[in-house]
Design a binder for these strands. Structure first.
Lengths: 197, 197, 197, 197
DNA sequence: TATGAATGAGTGTTCATTCAT
DNA sequence: TATGAATGAACACTCATTCAT
């Protein structure tokens, strides 16, 4: 695949993300996406032979953008609680700074279905929870800094708080970035720490 | 409006909820909803002159079912932390026992848009957070049992966790009800209590 | 199904037959068929939820028209050769008088394919050959008026000759009805009779 | 036109024949033909500036393959009935051994249309019947071995039997080559010979 | 109240063809 | 020669809505 093609593909993916974030999955038709990019519908179907492949490309591209962003915040931390705080903060910061990517992912993940009607992205794939589970096990079993709780359920809890913020930020329902971040970071710090009541 | 009409309306709303929960918003067409109920498309449009009114009725009906369910658990509690625990538990229990209503609400709330393309249900309406905010203020200002935090942000956090569980439960991604409930209840107990570190 | 619906269905089927006969299968799109009937595309898909069902209805309808036409010619014949002659003559006469139905059948039968790409109407179903096979067995085994030959292969031979005439008649490539009929009838009379060389 | 170009043209024609025989005219798109040959769509349109020219080349090529095959069987025969038998047998044998060429021809001939909607290959061109007409006239007027019948109508009858077998053979609806050939050869022998009843 | 016929806009997708490279 | 990006029209099909009955 040459540079020209890669550029076009990327442009179409970005247009799709824009439409998904602004107008929602139901309005993210091939025609609307093409219109957003000022190109013909045929160009889109040329580069993505069907809609599902475009939607999957949207998800992959957006995740690809988020990943390095998060690593940047998590390098070289020396305790489980500090790493959890960094994980949450970096995720939320990415959302505030790139809300459209997050919204696009959520639109696709919660609406893209297979021909048989089932959601294409089901929660079965628990790989998204693994970094959090690792942090929790570290704090519980090695450091002793976290209280006892189910790492999987806590991971799901953390991620649902993060994920649900995306659309609200994109819709400008939430604007106070710094206080939102620090409050949520503190909340999960209290929620997980071993404490003396 | 007589009894017969009310019955029909209710049947249509329940059919719509069923389709929304099983096949998602995109497949919740008037035709599919009518087919689910074994009635003609015309009956639906007779009782709900357009699709938006039906979708709004779905949300109202489902909220109406959840409300009394929750009050049952919250009556006569004498401390803020206990009331918070009861609020979360009753909400989650409703979800596990009636996941289709929760999924239907989420499908509609996250997809229903006005003609101009904006989400019809925006987070602007903060009335849904009021019960939680009241509990938090009670614990912070009167009892002194809660630590300092933003009641609104904490309310949003609690509700995200609750709301995000709906689809997962409906999809059978989460099955262990009792441990999920107790873990989440504990999590927010630790997250909100005034503690001595 | 009430009268109004039946009428519409029939009108659409007739329009489809007209388009198939005049413009061929490739041009027999839902849009062209609707245009032929001066109705909107939606009416067609309302009565025939997908194209295959319309095409199948075209075949059934056309066969239904041919059947009684042929019986009329074959009643009360008292010898196998005479019945064979009547069978061929009535079939050919139907073609000359209603070439569009025959052409429509051929267009559909030779072009309609399943999703997997196979012809929907395959020759596997040999029921169309049964009347001929019965006549041949009668003449061979009971009357002794026919020479020995494979009834199935002869039946296929007779039907190929009949079927291939349809498009030629419809295209006005063949115009001399009476001599064509009598020549073909004679041909298969000679081809099947027990003779003394 | 140099050798390399001729080779490419031939490869494309063979690929087109393959697709026509396997998937039918409707699926014989430029894209599918190119995919079959593992080449780009552009190569096809470079060698055949439009689809009609490719389809015509398919027909010419396939006829060209059949012709020598048939002559081989007909050389040096000394009577009209023997020549007729050889003509039919060689034609049928070609079909059983190369069904894809025959199917391809039939697909194109019965579907290729001009822009105005008329079949491109009409029966008007009676040159295909000439060899048969010559045989019949030879037997009727010179040898006296054939009975009286219309040479043109009989030629059409013979060819329709031959042509209709192509798709059936390609679809594996007919498998018993030798008996099919001998039965049909016999049938037209009886059908044409001067006999004493 | 209820039906279902009809409409017209919109969906994803396929395709022959053009053209710059 | 060959490529593949791009176009625009056409395709089957779905849908919310209207309306006569």
């Amino acid at each position: 695949m040459n540079t020209k093609t890669q550029k076009r593909r990327l442009q179409i993916i970005e247009d799709a993300i824009q439409v998904l974030a602004e107008e929602g999955y139901a309005n993210a038709s091939i025609g609307n996406i093409a219109k957003k990019g000022g190109i013909s519908k045929g160009v889109v179907t040329y580069h993505f032979p069907n809609k599902m492949q475009l939607m999957k490309a949207v998800v992959e591209h957006s995740y690809g953008l988020a990943a390095p962003y998060m690593e940047k915040f998590m390098d070289g931390l020396d305790s489980a609680p500090a790493t959890l705080r960094a994980y949450i903060e970096s995720n939320l910061r990415f959302m505030f700074e790139h809300p459209k990517y997050v919204t696009a992912i959520i639109e696709v993940v919660s609406n893209l279905r297979t021909e048989s009607g089932e959601l294409y992205y089901k929660d079965e794939d628990e790989s998204i929870y693994e970094p959090l589970i690792d942090i929790f096990k570290w704090g519980q079993e090695i450091e002793g800094s976290f209280r006892e709780f189910s790492p999987l359920i806590m991971a799901r809890t953390v991620r649902s708080v993060i994920d649900s913020l995306g659309p609200k930020i994109a819709n400008h329902d939430i604007s106070d970035m710094e206080s939102t971040i620090s409050e949520i970071v503190d909340t999960f710090d209290y929620a997980t720490r071993k404490t003396i009541k």
